[in-house]
């Protein structure tokens, strides 16, 4: 499930940041990706929600520090049958 989520999330990142060759891992942070900042973050969140069919809360979004945090939150929502 983790690998599937990572691959799916990678596609989201590639689309949002318009970087077709972008590779992410759970440790990837905003410092590792050009243009990942508070301006683009909200687009990333909206696209992730759409692709995974889930909904984050504002506090969850503000607590994301890296891709791993996003994956944990997605996995939690998937296991709770969101």
């Amino acid at each position: 499930m983790t690998d599937i989520n990572l691959n799916k999330l990678q596609e989201v990142f590639r689309k949002v940041f318009s970087q077709p060759a972008l590779i992410i891992n759970p440790g990837t942070t905003a410092n590792d990706i050009r243009m990942w900042d508070s301006l683009t973050h909200i687009e990333l969140i909206a696209e992730t929600e759409q692709q995974f069919g889930i909904e984050f809360s504002l506090d969850e979004v503000m607590a994301f520090n890296c891709v791993g945090d996003m994956m944990d939150c997605i996995a939690k929502k998937q296991s709770s049958g969101y």
Partner: peptide, 13 residues
């Protein structure tokens, strides 16, 4: 910024 954009996030950019 985050509460505002989060509320209207479906409109993305």
């Amino acid at each position: 910024y985050y509460p505002l954009t989060f509320r209207f996030r479906q409109h993305k950019q």
